[in-house]
């Protein structure tokens, strides 16, 4: 790879859910130049509702192995039930028992550790990769997009997030794109950590509420631990201007760069219903707010690089 080719990966997260992260990502997708989009909010992926991707390739995702009892071999000794730390194996409820009541593995709670497979003396437990979802490479009106759908009640979202980011990076390298724009997930746990590690910049979208402030504090500790350059913008800032000022002062103390305020506007919901990004939908003041946030992201990237 040429050293003068510099692609930047920007991850938008929120700590608290429902602050408007995905709506802002959709607008940044509209504004940014050559880019690939990655929807890493795999638990509740919504970006496709606005960007209407046309799926080009569809792939199974396996988060790991799962255990399955082979009825013909099982002697119902119950060793697996005792060995499973995740309480995933039980005898069926008494009422539904037949004469030969065999243990059952609940795939939702199976952690794929394989301990039951090894304690079973009858070789009666199969242990195979499970398909937990699908991931897609798609085309949208704003360029390529990598996204996924996890199966109902499936775990292992962290691994899926890593996979989506890696695929988006491959596309960015192949097409020499300028930006990878990542829609991250709420919280501070496993999928979030997988979304941000190694990124060039994190943008935290928060709101002027006590909850927003509290959640921002925790997410800021996380990005600081992983030493990722972090910026923040305050969405719906005019809902509580005093709180907005408080949060901005706090950001300054935490060494996080403020990259703007976005006002409250019911047009955000209307745009969503029309399957448009906000900047596509309205030329109103809110779109100017978002444009200014994007400009500040670009400035901040330059600042971090020269630092």
């Amino acid at each position: 790879m040429d050293s003068d080719y510099s692609m930047k990966e920007i991850v938008i997260i929120s700590g608290k859910g429902g602050t408007g992260k995905t709506s802002i990502v959709a607008s940044l997708a509209t504004l940014a130049g050559k880019k690939v989009l990655a929807d890493c909010d795999v638990d509740a992926a919504d970006l496709h509702l606005v960007l209407e991707p046309e799926v080009l390739s569809r792939n199974d995702f396996s988060g790991g192995k799962k255990a399955r009892i082979l009825k013909e071999e099982c002697t119902a000794c119950g060793k697996c039930i005792d060995a499973c730390r995740f309480e995933a194996i039980h005898y069926p409820p008494v009422a539904s028992r037949t004469v030969h009541a065999l243990p059952q593995i609940n795939p939702t709670f199976c952690e794929g550790c394989g301990v039951c497979v090894r304690v079973c003396q009858d070789n009666a437990i199969a242990f195979e990769p499970a398909v937990n979802g699908q991931w897609f490479i798609s085309d949208t009106r704003y360029g390529p997009m990598v996204h996924a759908r996890l199966g109902i009640a499936e775990g292992n979202s962290g691994k899926l997030v890593s996979l989506i980011r890696a695929e988006a990076r491959k596309i960015a390298e192949r097409d020499e794109l300028e930006f990878i724009i990542v829609d991250g997930s709420p919280g501070i746990g496993c999928p979030v950590i997988s979304s941000i590690t190694g990124a060039d910049m994190v943008v935290v979208v928060t709101e002027p509420t006590l909850s927003g402030q509290h959640d921002l504090d925790r997410v800021a500790q996380l990005t600081s631990h992983f030493q990722i350059p972090t910026t923040a913008c305050i969405n719906k800032w005019d809902l509580n201007p005093e709180m907005t000022r408080q949060i901005e002062a706090r950001l300054k103390d935490q060494g996080i760069q403020s990259i703007g305020r976005i006002r409250y506007d019911p047009a955000v919901t209307r745009a969503q219903i029309m399957k448009s990004s906000v900047v596509e939908y309205t030329g109103g003041a809110i779109s100017e707010d978002i444009r200014s946030v994007w400009r500040n992201i670009i400035y901040a990237l330059g600042y971090f690089i020269n630092k």
């Binding site: 429902g18 995905t22 919901t269 399957k275």
Partner: peptide, 28 residues
């Protein structure tokens, strides 16, 4: 509960007698 539908949510709700699912009337 936490938001979403994966492991932490399942751990939170699995022993409940009843789940109240909160949403808002938007496409998301």
């Amino acid at each position: 509960s936490p938001p979403g539908t994966s492991c932490p949510v399942i751990e939170s709700v699995k022993d409940a007698d009843f789940v109240l699912l909160v949403t808002e009337p938007t496409p998301f």
